[in-house]
Nucleic acid binder design. Structure first.
Lengths: 215, 215
DNA sequence: AATAACTAACTATCTAGTCAGTTATTTATT
DNA sequence: AATAAATAACTGACTAGATAGTTAGTTATT
């Protein structure tokens, strides 16, 4: 049985795409939640952005909160694991490892829509403390430990001066995370533009110069 | 138009305090907006926190947005001016001036409820771009210029190595602002506690060591 | 013909903003 | 000094509008 009659695609036609829908809905939610906040985003808008209607969204996610949880879980965890594997297999100097970590943060987070998540978590931490807690335990703390271990290694190797790896780690990470938050919130409104790569280079250069034993 | 009013509670005593109300309402709004976000905060709650009813809030502020604007304007501008005056009258070294600026940031912003404002602006930048723009132009950029001028002075004096003052300024400020955001969002949920003062000391020490000509 | 992905219209609820009425306080009068 | 009238700060019940979540029905696909 053949379909001979033409099927131009008039508005109102849709396809059944069970596999693709959840990902598309999560993408739409990420974009809108980051832009408008959780409470400020309408489920109707999420649906329209994903090319479906609201009913479909509720077909795949129990409610608005479940969608929020799903997007954080889905988007973040793989990134952390990737970074941890990178570090485990690295054999070069601590300084060059820090440089690589910053570069990767730039490439894989700042330049992608993933940079929206820190802002989202921070914004909604008051309304979703358990989610924020999950994020802290599974992302922030792991990131902190990663960076601290690298610095510790640098000290052990005689590469860096004696310092508290935990606090130095926090200092480095704070401006990395802040850059993500900034890029997804105020950067586009600021007429004093800047080059993110040069920002990271500047940070790396000064911090490392302050950390290294021989200048 | 209206039906018969119920007899209001005869025991609920209140006072007329025209002068104090706006400030109290703004304080309540700052606390709740920071905790719940703008959209997530009910005007009824703001009123109750301020010890009045919703009607009173609308007596002093035209609407929810006006209240938001008022609190940002009221709370922030005096701080910026204070810092600018401080810098203008300072005669010591650039390094010690940076140290003082960081200490003052800690005392006057981080330790007070003012630290909630950066988080608030960042969270609501998507919904209130004009307000965010106002904040960028009147707070962020002025802060950036302040810090850049100090660094520039340090270079001119032969105190610091040659570097781009604008970018170094951004690096220093980014972790200062981030600390405010962090303290008002995720810090209380993080079981790995830390000492903010030691954080700033660590940052100051490493950055300055990287900036100074003689180590 | 059967299945299930998807739609669209519905409802239940929540809240920003309003306003008629209440009460603390001030001012005028005795 | 006591009392009444006037004023305006404040209340709380109300309305209008918005949106999270539901579901009966429609349509693509097998």
């Amino acid at each position: 049985m053949s379909k001979n009659h033409k099927r131009s695609c008039p508005v109102g036609r849709w396809q059944r795409r069970k596999e693709a829908r959840p990902g598309e809905i999560i993408d739409a939610a990420l974009e809108l939640f980051c832009e408008k906040g959780f409470a400020g985003t309408r489920m109707d808008d999420v649906a329209r952005h994903a090319g479906v209607t609201k009913g479909t969204v509720y077909l795949y996610f129990e409610n608005k909160e479940a969608l929020f949880y799903a997007l954080v879980n889905e988007m973040v965890v793989p990134q952390v694991e990737r970074a941890e594997n990178m570090i485990a297999n690295y054999t070069g100097s601590a300084a060059s490892l820090i440089e690589i970590l910053i570069k990767q943060w730039h490439e894989n987070i700042i330049k992608t829509k993933l940079s929206g998540i820190p802002k989202l978590i921070i914004s909604e931490s008051g309304n979703f403390p358990e989610l924020a807690k999950f994020y802290i335990d599974n992302v922030i703390q792991r990131g902190r430990r990663m960076m601290a271990r690298v610095i510790e290694k640098g000290i052990e190797r005689g590469e860096f001066i004696k310092c508290d790896p935990d606090y130095v780690s926090r200092v480095i990470l704070s401006s990395m995370v802040f850059t993500a938050v900034w890029e997804r919130s105020l950067a586009s409104l600021d007429d004093e533009t800047y080059d993110v790569e040069k920002f990271f280079d500047t940070q790396f250069e000064i911090m490392l110069s302050g950390l290294k034993k021989t200048k």
